[in-house]
Design a protein around this nucleic acid. Structure first.
Lengths: 208, 208, 208, 208
DNA sequence: AATGAATGAGAGTTCATTCAT
DNA sequence: GATGAATGAACTCTCATTCAT
């Protein structure tokens, strides 16, 4: 056993600490207004050290994107697909999917990605595939299963999934993107999701 | 009659010309990367002149926002509310509301506003009220009328309107925000709207 | 008559002042060690102003090269070709050609050009054609005329010119390039040239 | 017998390896643009190790200078002074002296020394004494011997030596310093030397 | 009203050097 | 002796803004 593991750990954890700080700064002020000097100062090191870990500001931002894509993916993969009935399942999924897009990190991250995706399509693609796309797939799986069990009318499950997510997210998402009004409370989120579930069941539920 | 009116006209039209150019530049590269030098050069004047019309870059951006809010409002106010039946009305509204958010200027404008709304809530609010909110009101009016005529089940028309718009927009909107895939074609837009109308009618249409 | 001439004059003379200072700095410390900050400070202006006149350090160096090539060319074109006899003519030319390459600006300039010609062949070419090549042509012209008048044996005048210049310059030139010993005095220069003329005449003069 | 000798050898050969790499880098990009990082990377070690062998970049450059001075001296001391006749001897010497100054390492080394001799006269002096001065001494020795044997007219042999070397080198040397035109071929070198020998013999050879 | 030269703070980045391990 | 992480000063260059003309 060499000394390597310890060193590696130190280096890796320092790297992570830098990305931690950089994430905060990027989300606070955006890519352009985030300065390497400020990030270095907040990390408690020198600019030179920053450049020992990341070749450029762009690369540091790349590390940020990578981390938050992984985080998104984790959230999407962790989505509870088990539930007593369709409504409960949709409600659970809807809450997470709305919350993630409308509050805290999730929202600020989306805003940031959207702002930079123009310059670099790779960024947006990575995020879209890790987040929204995966989320929709999870919802679609739930719907498909329910259809197989006769608890939902048949039809394109992916399309239905997107429509459900849309009804959950869109209104508050657009408002938050515009920084319009305060961040929604859990109650508002529940209400929005409940309404979406209701409409969804009216459209896709078993005929009365 | 003084010479003033003519001068005023010149001044106003020059001001407009500056905002024209600035709009292009802001939408092309974003607020941070838009430089006053480049704008001045494209206008064909000097930087000093720019500052004769706008006290700061921020104020010039304010003029941009103002203009595009007015434009959004115009679009929303022009929405055709007359149509032979509910489906046709929703389809027409849905197409416009999706198109505006997913293509060309409308999308780039939304991205830009979203990126800057963090710094200055006033910007996002102005835009949100002129655009999304007004659009939803138009759709709600249509729904309300249809309910009054017994062609849609009763229920909160504003909520229903948001849900309809959501189903039209959300999927492609998020994809475009992430710069994911190419700009949607008219056919794709029609298909998305048609699917939304179908689901909406299944949920809110008169019981079979 | 507009205000333009005055402005142009100001701008041009300021530009010249910058190149003046930059020339000094480049010759003192070389291209790499010359900093834009120092140049700006010595000019008595800000770094920003420097960049209003020259897009980059490289371009400023380009202006330096241009100026000193023009200066070299002027010197070479001004070479006195009229003289009572061949010896006197060669002596006059030799003195100038040796002096220019071995003292003050001329030497420092050559050193600088040589150091940077590797990166950018255009620089070296411009200088070589303006300076050494033109100088040799002047000497060759003198020799040719003397040959026509029967005062020098026939033979390739260009080759003879280069050999004459070589005998004048080479020893002290190499020493100065190496910063070996003090800058030669006028007397040393005269002695070196006199020796070159003597040998040249022994080789190319009319047979005894 | 301690372990020291072996260690010393290792240390010395590692040191040599570093100077090998540093020489390449210095000659490729010059002193200022040679970075310790690049040198360390090419050596295959760390920057820290570099500083175990050389206290500073300047000192490493000193080692480079030392090595190349020794190399120059070797070349000069190896010059063949034996030859069937004066012409042959001069031709042989001239070829080497021209080649060394006009091609490959020799030229790049001269350029480098010239660029840095301004900062540090010691560098230039060391090189000048090891190279040009020693070369001239060798040529002078040949000339002196020939004079003693009556094959050359009497006169200052050192001065004659410098003039001969000058005629060999000067034209192509200045061109190469300016990076003007391609590196001379062996044939061009031979021609230049032959012309120098011819002129030299016309001036210094026995009277017809 | 228009100009454009001047500014100076601050950006991202590099690099010789140090030092704890 | 070797390492490589850390440093901080210095670099080139940009830009919003000001102001005399």
């Amino acid at each position: 056993m060499t000394v390597e593991p310890r060193t590696r750990l130190d280096r890796d954890s320092r790297r992570e600490a830098i990305v931690d700080v950089a994430s905060d700064v990027f989300m606070e002020v955006g890519y352009a207004d985030a300065s390497m000097s400020v990030i270095a100062a907040r990390v408690g090191g020198s600019k030179g050290t920053l450049y020992n870990y990341f070749r450029s500001k762009e690369e540091l931002f790349g590390a940020y994107v990578e981390r938050h894509c992984a985080r998104q993916q984790q959230i999407m993969d962790d989505l509870v697909v088990q539930a007593p009935d369709v409504q409960a399942g949709l409600t659970a999924l809807g809450r997470t999917l709305l919350t993630v897009v409308v509050t805290g990190f999730g929202l600020r991250n989306f805003t940031l990605i959207a702002a930079e995706a123009g310059r670099s399509p790779a960024i947006g693609r990575a995020f879209y595939e890790a987040g929204p796309q995966r989320g929709a797939a999870q919802v679609a799986r739930l719907i498909e299963r329910a259809q197989a069990e006769g608890r939902l009318r048949s039809g394109d499950p992916v399309r239905a999934a997107h429509q459900f997510i849309a009804m959950c997210q869109n209104r508050l998402f657009k408002a938050r993107l515009c920084n319009y009004g305060p961040e929604p409370t859990a109650a508002e989120i529940d209400a929005e999701v409940a309404a979406a579930v209701e409409t969804f069941m009216a459209a896709f539920g078993p005929r009365a």
